[in-house]
Lab assay of single mutants.
Amino acid sequence: MLEGKVKWSNSEKGFGFIEVEGQDDVFVHFSAIQGEGFKTLEEGQAVSFEIVEGNRGPQAANVTKEA
């Protein structure tokens, strides 16, 4: 699992980007967020995730919010 911080997200469009130190930003779709209820990410929020190869390149999977 990698750790990063949410660079920005748009809940209306359903995606955002995660900033990882020393690496390119990672695309995240809201379907990759683990948990119940409305899935949102806040700018600056710490997250853990895996990287998978998506249709348009690397993207985050199994995203969990850190406490």
Rank of each mutant, 00 (worst) to 15 (best):
L41R: 03
N10T: 06
E53W: 15
E21A: 12
D24C: 14
G37F: 08
A46D: 07
K7E: 01
L2R: 11
E66H: 15
K65Q: 09
Q23E: 08
D25A: 05
T40K: 09
E42R: 13
E36C: 14
F15W: 14
S11M: 13
T64S: 10
N10H: 09
D25Q: 04
L41N: 01
G44A: 04
D25C: 09
F15M: 03
H29E: 05
Q34S: 10
Q23G: 10
Q34T: 13
G16N: 03
E3Q: 15
G44W: 05
F17V: 03
A32Q: 10
R56A: 07
A32F: 06
G16Q: 02
V63H: 02
E21R: 11
I51N: 01
V52R: 08
E43Y: 14
G57I: 02
H29V: 05
V26I: 10
F38M: 12
Q59N: 04
E42W: 13
I33L: 12
V63R: 01
N62M: 08
H29F: 08
A67Y: 13
L41T: 01
G57M: 03
F15L: 04
D24Y: 09
P58H: 06
K5L: 09
E3C: 15
F27L: 04
E42D: 10
G14A: 09
E12L: 13
Q59T: 07
E50C: 14
E36S: 12
D24V: 11
K7M: 03
I51F: 03
E19Y: 11
S31T: 09
E21N: 10
G16P: 02
L41K: 00
F49T: 00
V63C: 04
G44C: 07
I18A: 01
F27V: 01
A32K: 06
G54F: 08
F17P: 00
K5W: 11
R56Y: 13
D25P: 06
G16W: 15
D24H: 11
Q45R: 06
A61K: 09
Q45P: 00
E3H: 15
T64W: 14
K7V: 07
A46T: 13
T40E: 08
I18P: 01
F17T: 02
N10I: 06
P58Y: 09
K65L: 14
V26Q: 01
T40L: 10
G57W: 04
L2C: 10
S48H: 12
N55C: 15
I51Y: 04
L41G: 01
S11A: 13
A32N: 08
M1K: 15
V47W: 02
A46N: 11
K5D: 00
E36G: 11
K7S: 05
E42P: 08
I18V: 04
G37D: 09
E43M: 14
Q45A: 10
A32E: 07
A46R: 15
F27C: 08
F15H: 02
I51D: 01
V63K: 02
K65E: 04
K13V: 06
A61D: 05
L2F: 13
T64H: 14
I33A: 04
N10A: 06
K13Y: 08
F15E: 00
A46E: 09
W8R: 00
V6L: 07
S9N: 05
F17A: 02
E43P: 15
A32Y: 07
I33T: 03
E19D: 05
A67G: 13
Q45V: 09
A46Y: 15
N62S: 08
D24K: 14
F30C: 06
V52K: 08
T64K: 14
F17H: 02
E21G: 07
V26D: 00
G14V: 06
V20F: 05
L41F: 06
G57D: 02
K39S: 09
E50G: 05
S48T: 13
G22R: 04
F17E: 00
N55W: 15
F30E: 02
A60H: 02
S31P: 00
G35I: 06
A61C: 10
K65P: 11
N62F: 09
A32W: 07
D24Q: 13
H29C: 13
N55G: 10
F15A: 02
E53Q: 14
E43H: 12
G35P: 05
W8A: 00
F38L: 12
M1I: 13
L2M: 11
L41W: 04
A61H: 10
R56P: 05
S11V: 14
S48V: 12
G37E: 09
K13P: 03
E36P: 12
I33K: 00
N62P: 01
A46C: 14
E66I: 15
I33Q: 03
G57E: 01
G14F: 10
K5H: 10
E21Q: 11
G22C: 08
A67S: 12
L2G: 04
T64R: 15
K7A: 04
S11E: 09
F30P: 01
E19G: 09
E36V: 11
L2Y: 13
V47P: 00
I33M: 08
P58E: 03
K7T: 05
D25E: 04
N10K: 05
S9W: 15
S31L: 05
V26E: 00
M1Y: 11
L2V: 11
V52Q: 08
N10Q: 05
E36F: 11
I33P: 03
Q34I: 15
E21V: 11
L2Q: 08
G37V: 08
E19S: 13
E12W: 12
G16A: 13
G54Y: 07
K7I: 07
K7L: 04
S9V: 15
S11R: 14
E19V: 09
N10M: 06
D25G: 04
G4W: 04
T64P: 01
V20N: 02
A61Q: 09
F38T: 12
F30T: 02
E36W: 10
I33W: 06
V6C: 06
V28N: 02
